[in-house]
Amino acid sequence: MKIISWNVNGIRAVARKGNLQEIFENERPDVLCLQETKAHPDQLTAGMRHPEGYFSYFSWAEKRGYSGVATFSLHEVTSFRTDFSESRFGNEGRILITEHPDFLLYNIYFPNGKASKERLQYKMDFYQICLADAVAQVENGRNVIICGDVNTAHTELDLARPKENAKVSGFLPEERAWIDRLVDAGFTDAFRLFESDGGHYSWWDLKSRARERNVGWRIDYFFVNEALVDRIESATLLTDVYGSDHCPVCLELL
């Protein structure tokens, strides 16, 4: 099974550029998870809402043009939900949890904490509830895959300039500590099973043309619970795919 996660920074934009169709045609993922779609379903063409051969699931923000996630699956899911156990987070369209035969897939667009202290606190609260929700599912005997734009680089290996960003949201100690807690709770960063060094990024600032110089951050992840680790065949960054300031990330399971 191939699962791809991609912050598209606007689904309509990547569709116009042809990049979205390229993912479907060239990669043919079993499941494609998109973040930051920036659209309600009624703003999408029929082809974007229902790519040929796929079942479509959406979560959108009350505010138009903001946030939003979508999951496209070759097989119809058993169920889906658009919030954690606490309903306060559902209105921003950041959460889409789909139930597949042998795992739950959390497609999450985690908040950015740069705007204000209040948004940073919102981000930390969101993190806490997400972890509690996922751990509860594992404790109930389910396998869990968490993917999406986490909006935090975990270690100094995960961004090009860690010292310069030590006091910037996205690399703050408390944000990084949450990923530590996620790992301590039994979730594995799939990419790090295959790559132990730095220089591998999934987001680059467009204005400074940072992608050309590979001055970036790795903030897009797949985390899997312990029982699924032995089934991971590969975890890669699709850095040759353009159309967004993020590149897609890919997980393949046996």
Rank of each mutant, 00 (worst) to 15 (best):
P111L: 05
L20Y: 07
Y109F: 04
R176T: 11
F89P: 10
A115G: 04
F171M: 07
T188P: 07
S5F: 01
I3W: 01
N19I: 05
E164C: 09
N91H: 12
E174Y: 00
E226D: 15
R211W: 05
I129C: 15
I23Q: 10
S116F: 07
F103E: 12
D230K: 08
V144Q: 09
V138M: 03
N112P: 05
V144N: 09
S196A: 15
E27N: 13
D102E: 15
F126H: 08
I11H: 00
I95R: 01
F84V: 04
L96W: 00
A160T: 14
V224H: 02
V77A: 06
R218A: 05
N225S: 14
R94T: 00
A166K: 13
I3S: 03
R209E: 13
K167P: 01
Y106R: 02
M124Y: 02
K207V: 15
A39N: 02
E233L: 11
A134W: 03
E76A: 12
G93M: 02
F171V: 04
V14A: 10
D149L: 08
D83T: 14
V224F: 01
L253E: 04
F72W: 00
L238D: 10
V150P: 10
Y66S: 02
N9Q: 09
N107Y: 03
E76D: 12
T152M: 05
F110S: 08
N225F: 03
R209P: 10
D205H: 07
S196H: 14
S244P: 08
S85R: 13
V168P: 01
I97F: 00
D220F: 03
C147K: 09
L193C: 15
T239P: 07
L104T: 06
F80W: 10
E52C: 06
R28Q: 15
D133I: 04
G148F: 05
I145G: 13
Y109H: 10
M1C: 06
D158Q: 13
L251I: 01
A160L: 08
Y109C: 03
T78I: 10
G65C: 03
L228E: 10
K167T: 13
L238Q: 12
H40R: 05
T71Y: 02
A15G: 11
T37R: 02
S67D: 11
T78G: 04
E156W: 03
G148M: 07
V31A: 06
N91F: 11
N19G: 11
N9G: 06
S196T: 15
D125K: 01
E92K: 12
P173H: 05
P248S: 07
G53K: 05
M1D: 07
E252W: 01
C247W: 02
L172C: 07
D197E: 15
P248H: 10
D180W: 06
Y54F: 11
D125G: 04
D158H: 09
A190Y: 04
G10V: 00
F126W: 14
R64A: 10
L105P: 12
G186D: 01
M124S: 03
L251W: 02
F223V: 11
I129F: 09
Q128E: 14
M124K: 12
N140K: 14
G65H: 01
N140G: 14
V241I: 13
L238H: 13
E22R: 15
A235H: 12
E139I: 09
T45R: 00
P41C: 02
F194Q: 14
A115F: 08
L228R: 13
A235Q: 08
Y66E: 00
S234T: 13
G47P: 05
D83M: 05
Y201D: 01
R211F: 05
G113T: 06
Y201L: 01
